[in-house]
Simulated assay, not measured.
Amino acid sequence: MGEGRAKNLDINVLDKIVKHTIGVVEKSKSQIFDIYEAARGEMENVKRDVERIKKETTDIISRVDALGKRERRSRLRLMEVSRNFHEYNEVDIKAAYEDTSNVQLELAMAKLQEQTLRHQRDDLEIRLKVLKQTVEKAENLVSQVGAVLGYLGNQMGSVVTEIESLKASQIFGANIIRAQEEERRRVAREIHDGPAQAMANIVFRAEVCEKLIDADIARAKDELKDLRGQVRIALQETRKIIFDLRPMTLDDLGLIPTIRKVLDMIKERSGIFPELIVMGEDKRLDSHIEIGLFRIIQEALHNVEKHSKAGTVRVRIEFVRSNVIAIVEDDGQGFDNSENIGGESFGLMGMRERINLLQGEISIQSKNGSGTKITVNVPI
């Protein structure tokens, strides 16, 4: 009895250590991501400032050139009046002198402004370069920490499993941590580059409209019309991200209606002609099988849309007694599958990882110029 309590105590302590370690790494990852977001936002602000300063510098250089020419003409005029003072009266001489003095003063101020702007531009460009390096380092750190989390989860889970067989489920969770972290990063990037950027632009356009309301109502109306379009685009992007995260139709209607909707979206976005063929009895599958199959087919279709330059894509799903077979085939440019072994994209690796979790099989056939065919066989 005493040995049993000691064993349980050791397991509990180990669990606590594992959770604390992963929690610390998670917190560090969150802090690094906050730094990344702050640096990226500051980088965008500095980039806009650099463009503004460059324009102002170009304008002041043109003004300095114009004032230089005007100053030379003014000095020549003053020299002419001074040499021929008997032909000009005192008023003419005074006017020529004052004009030269004014132009020289204006030129000196313009040159000073040009020098100031050049310094500001150089300082901002240096700052922008440093911020870019910070953003790149933070982005790499986020990815590396995510991989560390996956490694820690996998290794610690294995240790606990060896100590106590009742905790074997930890192995499954540890195997998918890396995929979860990469998915979170992808979603964060999509939100940042899509709706977040669009909303930032909406805020800027709204500020422009506020300034134009009293000054130019017609232009304000045009800006508001454009603003409405920006809001509509942001809404579409947000709905797309929500659909990619978890399509409601998958829970409500099942795999086939959800795939059909994805194909309709691809046709609308890219013009690729889709075809869906269903063989056998369309039936609801276990939730984890439906979501796993959907993610594999979704990733395959994403690759077709993004990389294949295809004109058509065919999805065939066959339900048999103990298996479901899914085939995604396109007529695009394909790729040399033999050269891709060992250097697969994360998308292909993610598909293989998901099929392993479903205890199924996947086959990828492709050649340069001959399209791609992906076959998935999952036991149900």
Rank of each mutant, 00 (worst) to 15 (best):
L9F: 11
D15T: 07
I17H: 14
I17V: 10
H20I: 05
I22E: 15
S30P: 05
I32T: 13
A39R: 11
E42G: 00
E44N: 10
K47H: 12
D49T: 04
E56P: 01
T57A: 13
T58N: 13
R63W: 04
R70E: 14
R72K: 08
R72L: 11
S74I: 00
R77K: 07
R77N: 10
S82T: 08
I93L: 12
I93C: 06
D99K: 10
D99L: 10
N102M: 03
Q104C: 02
L107V: 00
L107C: 02
L107F: 01
K111I: 03
L112K: 14
T116A: 15
L117F: 06
R118Q: 14
R118H: 14
R118K: 08
H119N: 12
Q120H: 10
D123H: 05
V135D: 04
N140W: 02
N140L: 10
N140P: 04
G146Q: 05
A147L: 11
A147R: 12
V148G: 04
L149M: 08
G153A: 01
G157A: 03
V159C: 13
V159R: 10
I163R: 12
S165G: 11
I171D: 08
G173I: 02
A174H: 01
Q180W: 06
E182S: 14
E182I: 00
R184T: 07
R186A: 10
A188K: 08
A188C: 04
R189W: 04
I191E: 13
D193H: 10
D193C: 02
A198C: 07
V203S: 15
E210R: 11
K211S: 12
L212H: 04
A218P: 08
R219A: 12
L224V: 12
G229P: 00
I233Q: 12
A234S: 07
I241P: 01
I242G: 09
R246Y: 12
M248P: 02
T249N: 09
L255P: 02
I256M: 14
T258S: 05
K261R: 10
L263N: 04
L263Q: 06
M265S: 04
M265C: 02
M265R: 10
I266E: 15
E268F: 00
G271T: 01
I272A: 11
E275L: 05
L276H: 06
L276C: 08
I277R: 12
D282Q: 15
D282V: 00
R284N: 04
D286V: 00
S287A: 15
I289V: 12
I291E: 14
G292R: 01
L293V: 08
F294R: 00
F294L: 07
R295I: 04
I296G: 02
Q298Y: 07
Q298M: 08
H302N: 14
N303T: 03
E305D: 11
K306N: 11
G311N: 11
G311I: 01
T312W: 06
R314K: 14
F319D: 09
F319A: 07
R321G: 08
S322K: 05
N323R: 02
A326P: 05
A326G: 04
G334Q: 09
F335S: 09
D336V: 00
N337M: 12
I341K: 13
S345D: 11
F346S: 13
E353Q: 15
I355M: 13
L357Q: 09
I364L: 15
N368M: 07
N368F: 02
G369S: 04
G371I: 00
I374V: 15
I374K: 05
V378Q: 07
V378W: 01
I380W: 04
